[in-house]
Amino acid sequence: SHLLLTDPAPLAANHDDSTNESSLSTLLTLCDLLNRELLVLIGWAKQIPGFSGLSLVDQMSLLQSGWMEALLVGVAWRSQGTLGEELVFAGNLRLDEAQCRSAGLADLYEALRHLTIKYQMMRLSPEEAAALKAVALANSDVDPVDCPDSLQRFQDGLHEALLDYEASRREQHRAGRLLMSLPLLRQTAHRAVQTLLRLQHQHRIPLHKLLLEMLDAKA
């Protein structure tokens, strides 16, 4: 309940009009959205029960490691309702395969569709999406961990919430199935980060400072 209550409202894209080149404009719009999503995610993470009980060092490590996974849960969640094969980055930023391809995001499109289809088939609920986002952060396998006991408690609390929720729906296998989707989520996030790093080098897309900082931790 707490995760749902604090789940941030979806952001809208601010369409970039600084260039006539549509693929560049798409990338700039996407990066701006990503930066704002990241800010909101950090604010949200602080409200996840147990997060503030972690040391500041661990809070930073978890976010630096798991931010893209958490954000992609949102993209996959928003995209699962679409009839077409669009990725819904925001209500007003829906990209199909051709648009992604022309923006240099073909590999990202493919990876994100794979993830989206997986969640689409499971009919992910809002509760599950919120839980997965929190679990992705908590489970980001940072090394070294400053305070392992607090991290373990944080993870256990989220796990327990997920089990309770699925038990209330009398869905015996769903919690396990969701957790089994985490490797694909990580793989997809890795692709997304690689794509961003590549775009930054190739096109010299100006990235916001926070986004650069988070990418820097991944590079």
């Binding site: 500041l56 060092v57 809070q59 930073m60 976010l63 400072k209 900082e213 820097d216």
Partner: peptide, 15 residues
Amino acid sequence: KEKHKILHQLLQNST
């Protein structure tokens, strides 16, 4: 963690 000033600040802000 010196390099990650913005994240550090965001986490330390209470709101």
